[in-house]
Design a protein around this nucleic acid. Sequence first.
RNA 1: GCGAGCGUGGCGAAACUGGUAGACGCAGCGGACUUAAAAUCCGUUCGCCCAAAAGGCGGUGCGGGUUCAACUCCCGCCGCUCGCACCA
Length: 917
Amino acid sequence: MSSRYNHRVAEPKWRERWAAAGIDRALSPEEAGGKPKAYILEMFPYPSGRIHVGHSRNYTMGDVIARFRRANGYNVLHPMGWDAFGLPAENAAMERGIHPKGWTYDNIAAMREQLKLLGLAIDWSREIATCDPAYYRHQQAMFLAFWKKGLVYRKKQKVNWDPVDNTVLANEQVVDGKGWRSGAPVETRELEQWMFKVTAYADDLLDAIGKLDKWPDKVRLMQSNWIGKSQGAKIWWPIAHAPDFLERTPEGQPCHARDPIEVFTTRPDTLFGASFLALAPDHPLTRAIAEHRPEVAAFIAECAQLGTSEADIEKAEKKGVDLGVRVKHPFDPNWELPVYAANFVLSSYGSGAIFGSPAGDQRDLDFANKYKLAFKPVVLPPGADAATHAITDEAFTGDGVCYNSQFLDGLPTKQAIARAIEELVKRGMGEATTQWRLRDWGVSRQRYWGCPIPAIHCAKCGVVPVPEKDLPVTLPEDVTFEKDKPGNPLDRHQTWKNVPCPACGGAAQRETDTLDTFVDSSWYFARFTDPNNQAAPFDPKLARYWLPVDQYVGGVEHAVLHLLYARFFTRAMRDCGYLDLPSGEPFASLFTQGMVVHETYRRIGREVPESNVEIAGDRWLERPTGFSLFRVGDRDTQTYRVVEQWLSPDDVEMREGKAYERGQDIPVTVGPIEKMSKSKKNVVDLDAFVQDFGADVARWFVLSDSPPERDVEWTAGGVKGAWNFVQRVWTLTEAHGRRAPRPGDAPPPEAGEGEALALRQLAHRAIQSVTDDIEHFRFNVAVARCYELVNAVAKLKGDGAGAVFARGEALRILSQLIAPFMPHLAEECWEALGGESFAAAAPWPKADPALAARTTVTMPIQVNGKKRAEIETPKGAAEPDVRAMALQHPAVKAFLEGVTVRKVIVVPDRIVNIVAN
RNA sequence: GCGAGCGUGGCGAAACUGGUAGACGCAGCGGACUUAAAAUCCGUUCGCCCAAAAGGCGGUGCGGGUUCAACUCCCGCCGCUCGCACCA
């Protein structure tokens, strides 16, 4: 009498047994003995509330690797923690009148239970939360150490200000000119900021990318581009003429506005093609002139209005205004050039000034043409004729040979650059330099729920570090959040804020900014190696044992932000003596997984006439209400409707291929397939799913349908496939279980022939391919191999000794192969088949080479590239034999009638191709 | 605009360093079991030609090329996705 597999009983049972046996605990280096270590880590979650099946993919992938490594004899560290500081906690506090700490810890408690439902092989004894003073006290100590080492400094500078979140953002957190969380257009403010000197490692961060050979090329490229190294020259252009008012500041002090203007260029070889200088609208000289010249001030204002989005930039015309300043050419004091302010020059790159060489740069050319500035071409493209080559509308930006360039004439571009720099240095007009796109990391955030910056401001002593003995600087808990009181509650907290100066004892104030939460996640992987250490962030010996992380798994959205910061942090920790990690690289191997996506559903709202539709960027709004709209239908039938609300998949049912609200006749708009997210409601809650189908079905499905790096769409069909598989495996296993040969039994002679032998061979080949597929992150292919094996087991009928043995062996192998993917079902099967201890603790199966190896191969025979027949040959059959067999095959003979065989190509064990005509 | 990746049945996808295209799953179709449904099991499923079978022809976005042989390599297009974006 067979029974259905009951995940509701089996799954909790095995989780309890694993926990009781402590099999997920990482061993100390001493306990591990000669075992190699494997540190497997998924990017830790922000405790936002609840987990949905979309989150589970990331953790499941890491878990497959962790379980696989453990079965292969590694000492595995697979921990979990919480990236627990951050803005959503404060927003929740404001909305609901609760404390961020309570909200965060409640979420952690709920999400921990949910993650445990998945049956992840995690060492929960190492759990950490970044908002725990036991964690962030070490972060504060490191901050002080970095400060001492010169890797932390303060700087008054223009910052990206998010007006919605009321805080500063790092450059990496500004996407398309908008805040990465709030989506609000970022404003510019001038603020005193705490900075991390990431640029101190710019060269190393860039060079070492070349050694990260187990990172996706895409991520490596993105990091290289972000660091953005350009080699070239600084050039100083002396002022020839300038308006008189530049002699003095508005206050009457002598000023430096007559200092030479510095520009950066990668192409000093084009200096003889220079036609003008252009300054950024907010270049100091532009602003100084704007004080006196209304048209310049107007131009600055106009530029400030211009958006920074793609569309704006594409449309924006190259525009400028003559500043009335003339400069001397560095190679010819008699050659004077005009200085413009121009809208296409960025103050944030280089020195915020360029020299325009129109023949060699499209923007410069557009600008010169608009303002009728004279120029000449100075780089001759390969193959062009110096007498006729001309530039009108299209610049030549490639390499060539210099002409019209005095002492540079005849030199190819690379040599000309070197020669030009040599001459600049000789004349004291410039020098070689390297320009980086990478900027230092501003870490000050004007928020409460973050790690306090351990510094005190004293009127007498300046900025003083908090003495180490006074750490941690803990967040005060008695703060209030009210919607009508914007700003940082730490600023308002008098008893916390006002403290004596550690240096002079006088009245002083604590720093009220907190650290960017990306600081918290920049070293958590090191903390996991020694999570309960009170005295230090971690024991360098333990860190040395476990680091680098052998396999890191996470979303590609962190390709620049988190991954770059973590690489900086390990270098800084190393140089401050915390960490013995010569490479400075935290993650040896990185895998960026695809998302789980799902259809979106929207309740259909009121129709809006097209005349009231306003297009705002990529969305539609209703005039004058400003309500968001969406479009229904195709081009001919399109109508606009108000977005009423997103509907959860649970509230939608399909009837005759159309979507309706559950139990009602209201049609539902099926929207695009998007990443599962709370805001679009297209999520499938994990608890409910595990209750209905089990964690194993969720795990199996998210890995089965698509390659792991690609998105996978959550569909009812996919769930069904996984569910069927679970039932099928269990039905076959249970039916076999009670007459199973025990593991290790010698095969009876009958197992060495016919179908029994074929199944044994297939099972052993499955071991080979699944092993290889897991190693190479081809989980979807591994899944397909398991299906093949199950199909073959089901197909083998009969109760003879050979069949029973082969089936028992195949099922036992199957239970082990599925163990990393579906650990609960694997245990249930393992037990039913008489296995000892746990499937999770059993060593990974080894393929018997004699069975896995192929003794015969099926070779296709082609005639003129078209397959005409197949032959069975022994593996490794000699070429003449194969050739003879092929030529004698009746089907082949028929095709060779009346033609001459010109050539016979035999690729051993693969294919035969006969060329004939 | 620059850079990267991708394009294979109705759908998700396989195909090792060029060697039988479509493994495996979903959906579909036919059948068994059942009073019926669900579940399960068996068969079938790229298109076209042929009454069927055997067999043949075509087929991996489009157009060329290299090769005995191309989803795979090269050249030129088209489309989609992602990243960066006036970076001097």
